[in-house]
Design a protein around this nucleic acid. Sequence first.
RNA 1: GCCGGGGUGGCGGAACUGGUAGACGCGCCGGACUCAAAAUCCGGUUCUGGAAACAGAGUGAGAGUUCGAUUCUCUCUCCCGGCACCA
Length: 816
Amino acid sequence: MSIAYDPETVEKNAREYWETSRCFEVVEDKNKEKFYCLTMFPYPSGKLHMGHVRVFTINDVIARYQRMQGRHVLQPMGWDAFGMPAENAAIQRSVPPAQWTYSNIDDMRAQLKRLGYAYDWTREITTCRPEYYRWEQWLFVTLFKKGLVYRKNAIVNWDPVDQTVLANEQVIDGRGWRSDALVERREIPQWFMKITAYADELLDGLDHMPGWPDSVKIMQRNWIGRSEGLELSFEVQDEDEPLTVFTTRPDTLFGVTYMAVAAEHPLAEKAAADNADIATFIEACKKMGAAEATLETIEKKGMPLGISALHPISGEQVPVWVANFVLMSYGTGAVMGVPGHDERDWQFAKKHGLPIVQVIAPSDGSDIEIDAAAFLDKGVLINSGDFNGLDFDAAVDAITKFFEASGRGSWTINYRLRDWGVSRQRYWGTPIPIIYCDDCDAVPVPVDQLPVVLPEEVEFTGHGSPLKDMPEFINVACPQCGKDAKRETDTFDTFVESSWYYARYTGPDNEQAMLDERAAYWLPVDQYTGGIEHAILHLLYARFFHKVLRDEGLIDTNEPFTNLLTQGMVLKDGGKMSKAKGNTVDPQGLIDKFGADTVRLFMMFAAPPEQALEWSDAGVQGSFRFLKRFWNTVGEHADGGPVVELELDSLTDTQKNLRRKTHQTIAKISDDIGRRYTFNTAIAAAMELLNAVNRFDDESDTGRAVVHEALEAVVLMLSPVVPHACHALWSVLGHATPIIDMAWPKVDEQALVRDVIEIVVQVNGKLRGRISVPIDADNDAVSAQALADPNVQRFVGKNEVLRTIVVPGRLVNIVV
RNA sequence: GCCGGGGUGGCGGAACUGGUAGACGCGCCGGACUCAAAAUCCGGUUCUGGAAACAGAGUGAGAGUUCGAUUCUCUCUCCCGGCACCA
C-alpha cells in the first residue's frame, strides 16, 4: 500500500539529497555545453514576496529543463544589497543599514533553500561587501583615466526642511514625504558616465538580439531616441552668447515666432535681476519636479524676458521667453517655438497670444486654417523667403547648406539618451573613489588604495549622509600632492552594482581582478529572467557596462544577455500586492502549509510568465489537490509491481490511444517549456495525460506497461516544476538513478501515427458538423463527404454551392 | 503628455502561422461513500430558448479587410509597466 503525500518529509529528503550530492555546483568544463541561467537578483528587503517566488521559479524550471537537455547549467544567486530601504529601516528602528541588510539576507537565503531552487550557492554575491564593490571602484577609476567619467552640475530634489536630497519616489505631489515641505530643484556637481559614447552601438545591437522581446527592444530604441537634424544658433541682441537649438524640422524655420529658455538659463537669471515678476516666476519654476512625466503634463507657463533673438535667415526679431517646461540640464536649455507646425508650441502660442505663422502648405494644394490647429505634415514651403515652393527634402537640403556655408549651424545626430548620473547623496552605497584637493581638484583614489571601504558602524539620523559626520572617513591626504584633502561622500547609484554582477558570478572569489578567464567560458548569460519594469534602465545600463568591460579586455562578447524573459507582476484583487494596501500574501505561510512544490506549481500554472498573475488562495488548494492525485496515481500503479517490456506490435486500440496521448504530450510540453515558455499550458497538458491515465481501465500486463510509460513521462516532465515530489516519485517507479541525473523524455514518432482524423465542417463560416476522414484522403473526397453530412445538408439545402474551402487536416468551409 | 503592454465564462486562463472560442484548473450544482462532516471519487457547468437533438448570441466599444477575425487594419475606451534618485 502506497503512503499518503506528505510534502514536509518528501521535500526534506529531496533537499538533503541535493545538498549532500552538491549536484548544482558547477565548474568550467570545455567539453560540456554551458547554459548560464540567471534571474535579476533580489534586493534583501526582509522576506521573500510572491514576485520573488514567481521569477525564481520560472528561472529554476528553465534551468532544470536545460539540465535535462544535457546542458552544463550555471544558476547562481546573490543580493542587490545597497539601497534606500536599508536607510529607512535604520531611521525607523535604529539599526545600522548593514546589520539590517545582513540579517535580511540570512532570512531570505533560508527561504530560497526551502523553495528548492537549483542554485550553485558557492558563487553567492553580496554587493555591499568590499570584495564586490572594490571592483566597481576600480572600474570607475579606470574609466576616469579614459575620459568616460566626468563631473557636471545636475538637478536634485532638495527638501528645505529636512535639509536632504530626496529620491523621486520620496516626492509626493511636489512635497517631501516626511517633512511635507515643498521640494525645490537644486543644482549640485555630480559624476556622470558617458553612456552616450555607446549610444549608436547600444542602438544597433538591438537589431542582432533575436532572443529579446520586441517590446523591450522598441522601448530601448525609443529611449535612446536617435534623430538627425540641424543644430543652429540664434544671435541674441546685446549678448555675446548665441542660443543654440536642435530641430528635426529645419523646413519650418521661418515659422519661428518665439524662443523659450529654462528658468536656470543665464538669460533668464539676468532678466530676473531687474524684473521682480520674472524673478518670482523663476522661483516658482524651481519649486517643481524635474521628472519628465511632470514636465509633459503640467500647465505650460511662460513669461517674456523682454529681449529678442535674431532669426538666423530673415534677421527678424523673435521674443525670448522663459518657460516652465524647459530644463537647463537637458540639451542646451533652450528651444525654438514653431507654433504653426508643432502641437505643443501651438498650444503655448495660443495661450500667450504669440503669433502663429503658416510656413508649410499641404502638398495637394488644399487650404488649411493654421489658427484652428497646427499643421504637422510635411508639405511645401510658403512664407519662407528664398525657400518658397520647395518640398520637405529640398528645403532641408537647402537650409542645411545655407547654415553649413555660413558656419552658423550643421547637420548633426542627436540622442534623447542622456549620460548616466551615478552620484547619490546617500550613505548606504558604494563610496565613489574620489578625493578633492584644493590644488589638484578631483583626484581618483589610486588603484592600490582600493577599496574605499564604507564604514558599517554608523549613527543614522536621516538628515543627510552619516559619512559627512565622519572626519576619519573624510579627511585624507591628496594622492597627488599629499596636502590635506577630502573624500567624496556621495555613493554610487545602485544600478552600478546591478550592471555587472552577472559577470562577477563567473569568478566571485577572485581577489586579483574584476573578472578572469572563467567569464569567457560562462558569458554571455543564455537566459535572463526578470521584471518588465527593468526593460529600460537596468537592462540598458548592463548592456552599456558589458561593452565597457569588453573594451577593457575583460570579456570578449558584445551583449550580456542572449535570451530575455520579462515576467509580469503578482496581483491581488486586480491590483499590485503592497504593504500599503495590506493585501500581501506571505509565501512562507503557504510553504509551511502545503509545501514548496504546491507553491511552485500554482505560480507556474496560474498564468504565462509574461502576464500579470492574479493571486488565488483557492487556486493554491487546487494545485495541492493535483499533487496529491498525482502522488496517489503513481503510488497505486507502483503497488501493482514491476511491469513487462512494452510489445508495440500487440497493442489494442485503447492502449495505442493512451500511448499516442503520452507522446503527443511529450511533444507538447517539450515545445511549451523549451520554445514557448508557456509553463501553464505545459502543466495543463500533464494534467490531461494524468486524467487519461486515471480513466484508462486496463490491468493487463501490456496495459500496465503503457501506463508506466505515461507516468514516467509525466514525472520526468513535471520534475522541473515540482522537483521534490518528482525526486520521490521517480524512485517509487523503481529507479535507482536519481531523477536529477535523468534526461528529458523523447517523442516516439511512431506512436503519433493515426489513420483517421476528425474534420470540422462549416457552412458560410459557421460550424455545422464534424466528419471522420482517412488521414490521406484528398480534398475532393473530403469535401464530398462534408457535403453529404446530414446537418450540413440542412443548411446547404437547395442553395447553390459557390465555393468550397478545404484546409487539409482541419476544416471544410462550404460557401452558399 | 510620451513610449511599451493588456482587456476572452462567476474566477485564473487556453485557442502557437487568419480556420472547432472557452483546453486545464478554481468556484458552483448534482450524485457516490459516511450516522454525520471533512477528505476523496463520478457527472454537469459561456449566455438565451429547448426534455433533447439543435438553434441564436458571444472574446472592452465601434468600424473595416476576409469564405472565415479572440488573432490583421483604423478609431475610441479602461487598466497595468516605464519616463532617467524605488529596485
